[in-house]
């Protein structure tokens, strides 16, 4: 199968799963913004995306994408390290046009994955998972009270900092990942390369800012209302 036994095929898997995950992030970010406007509205969405069959199917698919993306990442990195040979350069320099992110995608990816773990523990475990096992108050609040969990989580400065680090890593990961995915799929040339890079940077920044806005706004709100870590 060319998607596993050719170098371009393996990269196609990375880029297709990556693009799908970017689309998911876009959706997730848009959903989060609702929390800034209306608590009820946000919880309606949470309820809609509870342990329903369609949400479960989508979540499973999403999980599969994440797993494939990560497994391929490690696999590719292992192969690439082998291709580099046993001896390392004693002196290495980085040309100006080489982005830092592009050479550290795995590290960034690991940070992103760790953040994801935290995020699942903070929200998914208490919401969808709670519903699946039939214990809606597993996390202390109602499983569909996403708004409540947001308020709770981001009142804690430690989580705020961790989430912001996570988002920063995500930003670096995506700024490279965006154009890189299109390049791998062959949708690029000398002109479009620059365009994709610009579009990717703007798009990534908007997505990450959208996420960060929720984190920051709810933290600031918590400062006003005096809530604290649970």
């Amino acid at each position: 199968m060319w998607l596993s036994n050719s170098s371009i095929g393996r990269k196609v898997v990375m880029s297709v799963t990556g693009i799908a995950l970017v689309l998911f992030l876009t959706f997730h970010m848009s959903m989060n913004l609702v929390a800034l406007i209306s608590a009820e509205g946000y919880n309606v969405i949470c309820e809609f995306l509870g342990a329903n069959w369609y949400a479960l199917v989508a979540t499973t698919a999403l999980a599969a994408l994440v797993v494939i993306h990560i497994v391929y990442a490690f696999w590719l990195t292992m192969m690439n390290r082998k291709a580099r040979g046993t001896e390392r350069y004693a002196v290495e320099a980085k040309p100006k046009s080489v982005e830092w992110a592009s050479q550290n995608m795995l590290v960034l990816g690991i940070v992103v994955a760790a953040g994801l773990g935290l995020h699942l523990a903070n929200f998914w475990y208490k919401m969808m998972f709670a519903e699946i096992i039939g214990n809606p108050t597993l996390g202390g609040l109602e499983a569909t009270d996403g708004y409540g969990y947001i308020v709770q989580t981001f009142s804690c400065p430690i989580f705020v900092v961790l989430y912001l680090i996570w988002l920063a890593a995500l930003w670096f990961h995506l700024t490279h990942g965006f154009w890189s995915a299109l390049q791998t799929l062959g949708w690029s040339n000398k002109i479009w390369f620059e365009r994709w890079k610009l579009i990717g940077n703007i798009y990534t920044t908007l997505v990450v800012l959208g996420f960060a806005a929720v984190v920051v706004v709810f933290y600031l709100k918590s400062l006003c209302c005096g809530a604290s870590c649970v």
Partner: peptide, 16 residues
């Protein structure tokens, strides 16, 4: 691939 070269990860070091 067969000769053991790695996968391209678009770092652009080659071009530079």
């Amino acid at each position: 691939d067969e000769l053991g070269f790695g996968n391209c990860t678009n770092t652009r070091a080659c071009e530079a």
